[in-house]
Amino acid sequence: MTPSTLSQPSAPSGGPGVAPPKTAAPGGDDRASRLRSLALRFSMLWVLVLLVVAATVLYPGFLRAANLQDILTQNAAVGIIAVAMTFVIISGGFDLSVGATYALGSTVFAGVTKSTGSVLLAGVCALLAGLAVGGANGTIIARWKVNPFVTTLGISSVIAGLAYVYSDSAPFIVDDVSFQYLALTALAGVPLPIWILLGAFLIGSVLLSRTGYGRNIFAIGGNEEAARLSGLRVPWLVGSAYVMTGVTAALAGMIDASRLGVGQADVGATVALDTIAIVVVGGTSLRGGEGAVWRSAVGLLILATLTNVFYSLNISQHWQLIAKGVIVVTAVALDSLLRSRRT
């Protein structure tokens, strides 16, 4: 059955206290409004398409395989975190600590490699560190009901401090070749970080839209009390999303450390804004309860394309910062505006 066959308004409800539908049911009689809502739903996709067209015009080399591969490699780290951030934001939360966790992952990965010589052990340690950060965030936010904004900002400061203490404020420079395998190994001609990025988006997408877990994350972000009353383990579910951002942030730190051959504590300052930007530019709502992983993929490609074009046109990084901030605030403002229209 298609939605339209079900769309006859249900029998008039003339009883007392029965409010009429606030807006016409989707798939309602008005074809134009349906088209409009469809256009709106995929609006960021149209923006991306326009942007790619513009990019190819401004920078003829844009669509070359090597350039595309560069774009993806450079953005693999933030992209992977953005997948997890999508879950956190849909659950109604926020994670500002990913930048510090990214730096911690980078530092621990390089530091442990240096001191033990085992890249594998170092990787496990870095991921466990990310897990611990996510667990701490999740416990404080979901169990103790502390505001996620303040929690992750505070934890972020703690983690950054720990990373500096651990590295004694100096970068760990690793000349072990195996340290760079993570970033430089290529499968079928494509570097490993890109495969990890694709894998993260694929898994995240299935998890969010095709499993009960994902459905429950939506329910919590949309109406936490309803979720609780339906018997969901709200603290566990919310906490799990922060564990995801913690682990992916550490992994992202490892990838970039491996790419550069250096692990250091003073990286990642823009990671939190970058990942949140990716999620909200894609159209996932900061108010929780609505969004999708594919949206974050679109957001990633939009921002990555912009950066790439800016670089190719030799626009200074400072202008890029300004542009990025404007884009993020605009995206959130648009979301707010569309919502207030709707109700």
Binding site: V206, T211, R215, A219, G222, N223, A226, A227, S230, G289
Partner: peptide, 23 residues
């Protein structure tokens, strides 16, 4: 206790989603 953004169907199955092999 509806979740406003979820579909009618998802609201009916809230807390009782049917899954097979995790999906």
């Amino acid at each position: 206790t509806m979740v406003p953004a979820l579909s009618a169907e998802a609201n009916v199955f809230l807390g009782g989603n049917l899954s097979r092999r995790g999906l």
